[in-house]
Design a binder for these strands. Structure first.
Lengths: 234, 234
DNA sequence: ATTTTGAAGTGTGATTATTACACTATGAAA
DNA sequence: TTTCATAGTGTAATAATCACACTTCAAAAT
């Protein structure tokens, strides 16, 4: 086999920042690392890129390994390549962030990794430079969600407007006027009102909505304004 | 030395998409590839990541190698890792895009690589998946410039408003009303009007402006609207 | 000297988007 | 039938955006 001689080869890993929303706060899923170094420390779910797989395939594999989920929102975030980030051997890490419906996850939990959900404000110390990865992912999700309807990926297929508002408020750590929020999001035409209500949150019940997938895909790249004064909040 | 045994190591490269603006059109800088495979074909400037350098260091090194420039705008774009993208040996490429002042470049040109500027509409066939890299870079620059004042990086320190407008019009392949454009950009407070004029473009001459760096850094993350209806143009 | 020329520069009114803000409706439980 | 907690609704004021056409300047030509 011909090779590019004299060049250094190195390890390539993929690490996933997995976001979920429990109705209250935005959380990320961490595992207890299963091997040395830093064994049993809290860590992002990750793994080495295998010889025949692409980076997207690797990240999907890793996500499925932990959550059992496929076909979820997964986007490449950034590649971290500081030469000393892994003390054992140089390893470059391509990070992805995933947005999953926390309910779908809970039923298919793979417990090999002792995974746990942590609210973003209470993320434990992480190994290597994973703290930076999480920070960057937080920034990115806020940035992107201010303009594009990605947060729906965190909700079940049927959701209520109060749920959606909670989600936005928790992502941006702010409060939004109910009337303005409803007007704003309904004006996008992304949501269809359903007949039935969610009665879990109140006696009166709140109407369910679901995404209009046509509109969703058509408008995904448009600059939608989901939150007031987004620039102030990032 | 302890290592992660049994994992495959692979080559890591950095490729740079270098943008410049000549006053007329937005261009990228390409080189004739100096080694096999695909020797002498048009290619992005790139190189392998060296054992002791970070990815940012590698991209800066590569950019300097070609242009002689340091301290220019350089941002990580995306990492391409399709296992078959390089036919010789698996090589993952971390791409960066650079925005440079084309005038600064011309004086320090390194000709070892037979570099040439190509208008974005007339980019020749590129090797491997570099076509995808360029497409993505184009999208990213449009996306980002719609919200953040990055295009100033393509202009000399002193520039005129007609120049700036030309730049925006050429990036978005559109025309913008002069009055609205001036109002819009001056309202950001990013620019300071200078005493002297550029007389090269007209008899009357256009006033030079320069960036107010305070404002520039302070407002960089804010969502500024530089072009009308950005969502329609991306 | 006067005129021509070509780009630079300027202001306003109409439309649209955004914001602030407070009460009523519902239905279960007490 | 009253209480309670959350769901749901409208409007007016303000701000942002858009469309649109003429004047100013200074060099070059006459």
């Amino acid at each position: 086999m011909i090779r590019y001689s004299k060049q250094t080869r190195l390890l390539l890993a993929v690490d996933c920042i997995i976001f979920g929303f429990d109705g209250e706060t935005l959380k990320i899923l961490l595992i207890k690392r299963g091997f040395q170094p830093e064994k049993d420390k809290w860590s992002l779910m990750g793994g080495f890129v295998q010889p025949t797989e692409s980076l997207d395939q690797a990240s999907n594999r890793i996500l499925k390994q932990l959550t059992g989920l496929e076909g979820v929102y997964l986007e490449q975030l950034h590649t971290f390549g500081n030469p000393l980030r892994d003390p054992i051997e140089r390893t470059v890490s391509v990070t992805y962030f995933a947005l999953i419906d926390i309910n779908k996850y809970e039923t298919q939990l793979s417990s090999d990794y002792h995974p746990e959900w942590f609210p973003l404000k209470r993320v434990p110390k992480l190994i290597f430079d994973q703290q930076d990865m999480v920070e960057l992912a937080k920034k990115r999700i806020r940035y992107k969600a201010a303009l594009h309807p990605i947060l729906f990926e965190l909700l079940p297929p049927k959701f209520t407007l109060p749920q959606l508002q909670n989600l936005y408020e928790s992502v941006y750590n702010t409060t939004i006027d109910k009337r303005n929020f409803r007007q704003r999001v309904l004006a996008t035409g992304l949501m269809m009102k359903l007949e039935d209500k969610d009665k879990s949150g109140s006696k009166r019940g709140a109407f369910y909505y679901q995404l209009n997938m046509q509109q969703y895909y058509a408008n995904f790249q448009a600059f939608l304004n989901f939150i007031p004064n987004p620039g102030n909040l990032l």
